[in-house]
Amino acid sequence: MKVAITSTGNSPDSMLDPRFGRCSWFVIYDTETGSTEFIPNPYKNEEEDVGLAVVNLIISRQVKKIISGEFGVKVKSLLDRRQVQLILLKESGFTITKIIELLNH
């Protein structure tokens, strides 16, 4: 299964980016193969409709779970409809490596 994690940078030591639509990078982690892919968020600085564009990007990658610090109301309803599970981490200080470790509990 593929999991998307919002990241502040493009390395496993980067921190979770608390923003969903305007995060810097997305990490696509495949729980079966253990592979990670870092994708820069192309919509980061767009003024409008960021949520929808980002949701479409995520959906195109067959992601089933998203880990971030917050989700907008519109984004939540879009993702609910597509049965994507949302996971919120409110505390800062989670690195991508730490989150992947948690996923592999």
Binding site: R22, V50, K74, L86, I87, L88
Partner: peptide
Amino acid sequence: EGGKVYFDSEWYHCNQCGCYFNHPE
């Protein structure tokens, strides 16, 4: 634009790792 989602009855909290999550089914 955007902002936090308000937690309602479909949100869960994990006492172990501290995350919140919804349950799409």
